[in-house]
């Protein structure tokens, strides 16, 4: 097993050298006005991703690469594995050239691979690597950290922690509630997943206060998205009776049909929703809900989100 001594200063120096090398390999077209070509270093935040080593690194890499276009950041990926005494790091640059542009945009990435016994070391390495004065966000996709009860060790590293409660091994409502109780800002991609559906419902209702809203979900048990939707409607419309029921069959417990007083019926699907309002049938587009889309929406919010917190509060109360 390899275990190197890792110091933040060394990684920062490597990052500096990386930029010089990358710029040398793409100096821009000779003879053009300076600044028109070449590299542009972009950074608007530090994104720290905690993942288990078994996770498909290619898929995560693609998600992060897509995310960089909207949220250029210093990305720190921490891969956690079982076993003893392993800790290593490497630095790389993610570059792309937007369509029609001459300049290449590059973001920097640091990858740390560590065994769980080095989690404390990881925290002391990651802290100084964060870009000063810009938001720091954690994407938590490591079930290992949750199982080890080590959430508290990583929370101080960031201004916000993002989880996906519909993923196996993810923190549940209780853990999310505890994070909020301790003053941290949290986001849940299961909540983000229903943003457009919520916006559609709010738009359709306008000032109307319906008597009954029924949410029918797939499968036998309501999943986090259904629970969030119920809690949001319950909190926002105190005079409306909101109920959920299983639509039967197999499934992940996600909303299938929303009936509002039997006058409006919404059937959310992949990428769109069908709406019936009496004789009027319409189609509204909804985001497909890819991981990078959801994360992108969540990265835009680095403050307490009172609507989310109100819904979570209702679920955990």
């Amino acid at each position: 097993m390899a275990c190197e001594i890792i110091k933040p200063d060394r990684i920062l120096k490597e990052l500096g050298e990386l930029w010089i090398d990358t710029a040398k390999s793409d100096p821009g077209k000779p003879g053009t006005e300076s600044g028109d070509d070449g590299l542009l270093r972009a950074c608007s935040m530090t994104l720290i991703s905690f993942v288990d080593d078994e996770e498909d690194s290619m898929a995560l890499g693609e998600t992060l690469a897509l995310l960089m276009r909207e949220h250029p950041s210093r990305s720190i990926v921490v891969r956690l594995r079982e076993g003893e005494d392993f800790l290593e790091s490497r630095v790389l640059a993610q570059c792309w050239k937007p369509f029609g542009h001459r300049k290449q945009i590059c973001c920097e990435q640091v990858e740390l691979t560590a065994t769980m016994n080095h989690l404390q070391d990881v925290a002391s390495v990651v802290g100084p690597l964060a870009v000063p004065d810009l938001p720091r966000l954690i994407l938590l996709r490591s079930a290992r950290i949750v199982r080890a009860g080590a959430l508290r060790k990583i929370l101080p590293l960031a201004d916000k922690i993002i989880v996906d409660s519909s993923r196996p091994g993810a923190p549940g409502f209780g853990e999310l509630g505890a994070m909020l109780d301790s003053g941290h800002i949290a986001g849940d991609l299961a909540w983000t997943r229903i943003t457009e559906l919520r916006a559609l419902i709010a738009h359709l209702l306008g000032e109307t206060v319906p008597k009954v809203i029924t949410i029918e979900y797939s499968g036998r048990e309501a999943g986090p998205e259904t629970r969030y939707l119920e809690a949001w409607l319950d909190g926002g419309l105190p005079d409306t009776h909101v109920r959920i029921k299983s639509g039967g069959g197999e499934g992940l417990g996600t909303p299938l049909v929303i009936r509002i007083d039997d006058t409006i019926v919404i059937r959310p699907g992949v990428g769109c929703a069908e709406i019936e309002m009496g004789a009027l049938k319409q189609r509204a587009s909804l985001a497909v809900g890819r991981d990078d889309e959801l994360l992108s929406a969540e990265l835009k919010i680095v403050v307490h989100d009172p609507v989310f917190e109100r819904a979570l509060n209702r679920i955990t109360a």
Partner: peptide
């Protein structure tokens, strides 16, 4: 639970199904 306010919007002032942060 105590919920922090942001940009002059807090739980008390949010009406109905509003979600100014996200919608």
């Amino acid at each position: 639970r105590m919920v922090a306010s942001f940009a002059n919007v807090n739980l008390m002032s949010l009406e109905g199904l509003e979600d100014p942060l996200r919608f």
